[in-house]
Design a binder for these strands. Structure first.
Length: 426
RNA sequence: GGAGAGGUCGCAUAGUGGUCUAGUGCGCCGCACUCGAAAUGCGGUGAGGUCUCACGGCCUCCGUGGGUUCGAAUCCCACCCUCUCCGCCA
């Protein structure tokens, strides 16, 4: 959400910012509704003031035993009451409509974000590692996984449906090793506090981080309880501090959380869906930061570095891309994607996004801080990065470390977690 | 799921229709006393909106949303959350 008075005084910048993200916003309606609402509020405040005074006068007269005189004020009180009530009804309508519009207005892109219209306009800011080469034809990860017997795609479909995975034996072990390794890495080497959040959240939380109201279709909803499966740990972890005022000494707050993530992926069928590339349920370690506005862009860089460090430690080839305006998501001001190179399918796979939301989520979720004691509370900046998503990481690990005999080598830092140097060929 | 209790200004509590523009204690800030501190005393102490150059004024907020009333923290309805006991269950 943007600041209401900012929209009011800079409608052209808002229109332009939204256009850069290729999102249309009913700004003219915002302005008329906002103006009407403010006039109405001023008017109602005056009437309430008069009504309060009338009530007080009646109270005093009653106490003094002047019943008749008190009664003479009651008519005025009653008519004020009626006027206030009908005004409030209108106020509620306008407020609801304004909020509805407001929630549709995207965050503005940061000035450092390249202007563009498609993926082509993203900027590669870093390329790390060398693409592995093989003296045998490398197999795609789904073939490796099936021949090693570590992933059972058919069982996943049978048990739950397409897009759900059963990991078996070393596959399951590798999965568990990866998230343990990554959580340990971020908490022990990078100063994050470990969080284990609920995987189910309420509407208020999803509204706070911006998934609702626009993206309800993408979420799994349990109607009986009006609860949702989380699409990312970002939702529960960011909402930990919803409706709080933090002390500046607490900042920056850095959380690392493992969770399963659930996504309906409605409308995504057919695109990059082979193997582990797009699934409905996957595991992920998520990094979340709360910090001051002054430091958020520096924090974005270090957070991106924290996610990259995991890939570097595993010896993977990747590149970091700064998204152009058109590719930025609704809530984002600036975003880097980390894309790892899958050598067999010869594609870059998006494995992490590191984003600065500035005050956009904080305003929705009402997360504030005081710069010093007695200072007026202001909104924090929130950031998050995947650190990182597991299925694609597993896919690339398998493809990158496959051997001619069909076995797969385990990268050094993972060995203590997996309990083996190599997953043997069958 | 059933029965009961409860959600009040950072914390703890008081308040059951009109001196509640919410009292008191603790905490915190300022001042006084002191060489300094403690103790003590005095004053202050939330959030949001709006008007004003400013001083300051007005409005809203006592879990949330409605309602009754000239007037609601207080009465009514619905919902949410917490605690205790019972039931069920990993």
């Amino acid at each position: 959400m943007l600041d209401r008075s900012f929209i009011r005084s800079n409608p052209d910048s808002v229109r332009e910012g939204a256009a850069l993200k290729r999102i249309e916003v009913p700004l003219d309606e915002f302005l008329t509704v906002d103006a009407e609402l403010r006039t109405l509020k001023t008017e109602l405040d005056g009437k309430r003031a008069e009504s309060n005074a009338t009530g007080k006068t009646i109270g005093e007269l009653m106490r003094a035993g002047k019943k008749d005189e008190a009664a003479s004020h009651q008519d005025r009180g009653k008519s004020l009451r009626e006027e206030i009530q009908s005004g409030e009804e209108r106020e509620r309508e306008l407020e609801a409509r304004l909020l509805e519009i407001e929630l549709q207005i995207p965050n503005m892109p940061h000035e450092s974000v390249p202007i563009g219209t498609s993926e082509e306009d993203n900027q590669v800011v870093l390329e790390w590692g060398e693409r592995p080469s093989f003296n045998f034809p490398p197999k795609p990860h789904w073939e490796i996984a099936e021949s090693l017997g570590i992933i059972d795609f058919a069982a996943g479909s049978k048990v739950s449906g397409s897009g759900f995975i059963v990991y078996r034996g070393f596959g399951a072990r590798l999965q568990r090793a990866l998230f343990n390794y990554m959580v340990d890495f971020q908490t022990q080497q990078r100063g994050y506090v470990e969080i284990y959040p609920p995987f189910v959240v309420n509407r208020a939380s999803l509204l706070g981080t911006g998934q609702l109201p626009k993206f309800e279709e993408d979420l799994y909803l349990m109607e009986r309880d009006d609860l949702f499966l989380i699409p990312t740990a970002e939702v529960p972890v960011t909402n930990i501090h919803r409706d709080e005022i933090l002390d500046s000494e607490q900042l920056p707050i850095k959380y690392a959380a493992f969770s399963a993530c659930f996504r309906r992926e409605a409308g995504a069928a057919g695109k990059d869906t082979r193997g582990l590339l797009r699934v409905h349920e996957f595991d992920k370690v998520e990094l979340v930061k709360f910090c001051t506005p002054e430091s958020s862009y520096a924090e974005l860089e270090t957070m991106r570095g924290d996610a990259e460090a995991v890939l570097q430690s595993l010896g993977l080839c990747y590149r970091t891309v700064m998204l152009c305006t058109a590719e930025l998501s609704f809530s984002n001001a600036k975003c880097y994607d980390l894309e790892i190179w899958a050598p067999a399918i010869e594609k870059h796979l998006e494995i992490s996004s590191a984003s600065n939301f500035e005050a956009f989520q904080a305003r929705r979720a009402n997360i504030r801080y005081r710069s010093e004691q007695g200072a007026k509370p202001q909104f924090v900046h929130t950031l998050n990065a995947s650190g990182v998503a597991l299925p694609r990481l597993m896919a690339v690990l398998l493809e990158t470390n496959q051997q001619e005999d069909g076995s797969v080598k385990i990268p050094e830092p993972l060995r203590p977690y997996v309990g083996t140097d190599v997953i043997p060929a069958n």
